[in-house]
Design a protein around this nucleic acid. Structure first.
Lengths: 245, 245
DNA sequence: CTTTGTGAATATTTTCACAGCT
DNA sequence: AGCTGTGAAAATATTCACAAAG
């Protein structure tokens, strides 16, 4: 087996990879920060706030306020000088940019502990990602209920995905089965795969593969742990000094 | 409750945030890519390869080969021209940079489905993150076994963490309890917190808070889904064209 | 006084392209 | 041939600093 793939998980621009695309598009970094802003906004809205400044958001999510303001300008200029941004409006704006509205149905494969944990978690449906089908390969589990779903035979996955119009697949199976499951998802017309199995899988390059490997994330952390005892963290608050001469 | 925090999850340089630090340090982006390289290397080693080129790694992880080569130069120059890199050596090199060797003991809080899934997952211990204690607040669970551990009362967490020298805390509890757990971890001297609860928590700024929110990651994906049907993905292979005049 | 929006200045990252080693 | 290591260029991202607006 030669090593030759096109896994492509870490691109950098929205438009295209070519060096000289005019790039009228939104920088990837902005898109990456948007969900954090959204999370922050939803949380402060719950606390009763109606309005928020870039400085406040910055304190929350650890981003320089000027950068936040510039991020927002990619989508227009709302926000009142001297006041800040209307939280409701900002939320719907960001949701609009991220393309909310379309529902993206999820197929969950793997009814083990992890699968059950994902089912429990209401964050997915709350944000427009309803789980609509659950699969497993274990005859013991097939036919039983998990959450409000009957666990289906994984062999029916491609057909079921097509029939139900499922576009997002979540892999929560052991590493050894992950590639097989991914292949079936591809056959079923998946557009996005969220892989929780601790193994690299290969998919055609028009499919967005998201790897969620806590170990990888922890390894990254390790580096900061071993330096000077000082972990990575920005003292962002040294910013926006306003000098009044 | 006023909005004023210092959550600081998204910094950009290893050294310090100040604009003009001489910055002899490794760019954060490099450190972020290292675990992917490592994962790739470990996997190809298992497949029996001894040597690998930047181009091959690039195909695997979706990074431009030139960038990979430059990343490596931050840690020295190994790698044979015309051949590539020795996989074993490269692995140990990266592990060295990331600071392997020190074990980082983990306390897991939350013995629900998610906690059980994390326990199952052998990736953590395999990479030097052994789980050494599990906590819960449910009297029904306390005293019972999970994996090979007796579930402890979460109220003993600070003391136990100190006694066992635990530096990493994993939060796998409902959102409503997350902040309380985080506070106890801080009291116990935690250095890194991995938060799986779907809520933002605040910690002192010398503690590395890692948020693992699959929704946030999916939201980001959404954006790419809605553009032109073309999901983000680099056709990296249009690169390193070697023109021979 | 507060805070946005933004040109301009900086800083950083990524990529190209090729000399040089095997 | 095949590949690394790296200056130099290009592309991006971040931050400063301030005029204008509420």
């Amino acid at each position: 087996m030669p090593v030759e793939f096109n896994n492509t998980v870490g691109a950098k621009e929205v438009t295209l990879m070519k060096p000289n695309t005019p790039s009228p598009s939104v920088p990837d970094g902005v898109i990456e920060r948007l969900p954090s802003y959204l999370e922050c906004l939803i949380q402060v809205r719950q606390e009763g706030l109606r309005t928020i400044s870039s400085q406040q958001i910055g304190g929350y999510v650890g981003v320089n306020p000027a950068e936040i303001r510039r991020d927002f300008t990619y989508f227009g200029t709302f926000g009142k000088k001297g006041v800040g941004y209307n939280i409701d409006y900002l939320i719907s704006k960001i949701q609009g940019v991220l393309g909310f509205g379309e529902e993206h149905k999820i197929a969950l494969v793997g009814a083990g502990n992890l699968g059950r944990a994902i089912c429990d978690y209401d964050g997915l449906p709350r944000h427009g990602f309803p789980i609509v089908a659950i699969f497993d390969s274990d005859p013991q589990k097939i036919g039983k209920k998990l959450d409000k779903f009957i666990i289906r035979d994984v062999r029916t996955l491609p057909k079921t995905m097509k029939r139900l119009g499922i576009t997002v697949g979540v892999i929560a199976v052991p590493a050894s089965a992950a590639q097989k499951v991914a292949d079936m998802m591809v056959e079923g017309g998946v557009k996005v795969i969220l892989n929780y199995a601790p193994i690299m899988i290969q998919v055609p390059e028009n499919i967005y593969l998201h790897i969620t490997d806590p170990v990888k994330e922890l390894l990254h952390t390790l580096y900061y742990l071993s330096r000077t005892g000082r972990t990575r963290s920005s003292s962002i608050m040294e910013k926006e000094k306003v000098f009044t001469t």
